Computed example of a mutant assay.
Amino acid sequence: MAVLLGLLMYPGNAHAAPPACAPPVASTTQPGYLVADPACDPDGTPFAPVAGSTVDTGILNGAAYRLERPARWNGELVVFAHGYRGTGTTVFVSSPSLRAYYLERGFAWAASGSQDAAFRPGV
């Protein structure tokens, strides 16, 4: 949570969508798994921030994350806890379906592509 608050207060990597998506990288925490580029949507297209918003993406402790803060941020954060996201051995981060709703009302949001569920038998 401290990392999220730091990113919200001092976004150091805020950027527009990259021109192309990078290939998945090897997980630093789970051998044999890949982490998809968090600056891209699951379909492989660059993530497009809402006009005026700032976006920070990265990979931390084997999980991709994405954080979007609107220009008129109300100081509150919605954490999108969607659970495991991935196909096979590639995990990714995705945006909440209520993303536009949150941003229009001044809420920042954050999500990660946690790998935890990928390593439990039967999940």
Rank of each mutant, 00 (worst) to 15 (best):
92 F>I: 06
46 P>I: 09
115 Q>A: 10
104 E>Y: 00
43 D>N: 15
86 G>S: 09
21 C>R: 05
89 T>Y: 05
42 P>E: 10
68 E>I: 06
54 T>R: 10
5 L>P: 00
123 V>M: 13
90 T>K: 07
72 R>G: 11
41 D>A: 15
90 T>C: 08
26 A>S: 13
25 V>A: 10
99 R>C: 09
4 L>W: 14
42 P>A: 13
85 R>N: 15
67 L>N: 04
19 P>E: 07
29 T>I: 05
70 P>I: 02
36 A>E: 06
64 A>P: 15
11 P>T: 05
123 V>F: 07
26 A>H: 07
23 P>A: 15
119 F>G: 14
106 G>S: 08
60 L>V: 12
28 T>W: 00
10 Y>G: 01
69 R>S: 08
2 A>E: 14
94 S>F: 00
16 A>R: 13
96 P>V: 10
91 V>N: 07
92 F>D: 02
59 I>K: 01
8 L>V: 03
117 A>K: 08
112 S>V: 08
95 S>K: 12
75 G>V: 10
49 P>C: 09
76 E>V: 02
10 Y>N: 15
106 G>D: 07
23 P>M: 06
108 A>F: 04
18 P>E: 01
58 G>W: 07
34 L>N: 08
45 T>M: 11
36 A>M: 11
110 A>R: 00
122 G>F: 00
43 D>H: 06
63 A>H: 02
72 R>F: 06
78 V>N: 03
21 C>G: 06
57 T>K: 04
42 P>F: 01
37 D>A: 03
103 L>G: 04
82 H>C: 15
79 V>P: 02
3 V>N: 10
50 V>A: 14
23 P>Q: 11
1 M>L: 05
79 V>R: 04
97 S>C: 03
1 M>Q: 13
96 P>K: 11
46 P>D: 08
87 T>W: 00
38 P>C: 12
54 T>A: 07
83 G>P: 10
75 G>M: 11
83 G>E: 09
92 F>N: 04
38 P>L: 08
70 P>T: 06
25 V>R: 11
94 S>Q: 11
20 A>N: 12
52 G>C: 09
65 Y>M: 10
73 W>Q: 04
57 T>R: 05
70 P>D: 05
36 A>Q: 15
50 V>Q: 11
85 R>F: 00
102 Y>T: 05
46 P>N: 06
17 A>I: 05
83 G>L: 12
79 V>W: 12
40 C>L: 10
19 P>T: 08
109 W>E: 01
89 T>V: 12
65 Y>T: 02
40 C>Y: 02
91 V>A: 12
68 E>S: 07
121 P>Q: 12
67 L>E: 00
81 A>R: 08
100 A>P: 05
97 S>T: 14
113 G>Y: 02
122 G>W: 01
83 G>I: 02
8 L>N: 06
73 W>V: 06
104 E>A: 15
86 G>N: 09
90 T>E: 14
7 L>V: 08
110 A>L: 05
123 V>S: 14
107 F>L: 15
95 S>Q: 13
3 V>L: 13
42 P>M: 09
97 S>D: 13
9 M>L: 13
71 A>D: 09
99 R>L: 13
104 E>S: 14
53 S>V: 09
13 N>I: 05
62 G>Y: 02
5 L>I: 03
105 R>K: 12
13 N>F: 09
94 S>K: 07
4 L>F: 13
100 A>C: 00
36 A>S: 14
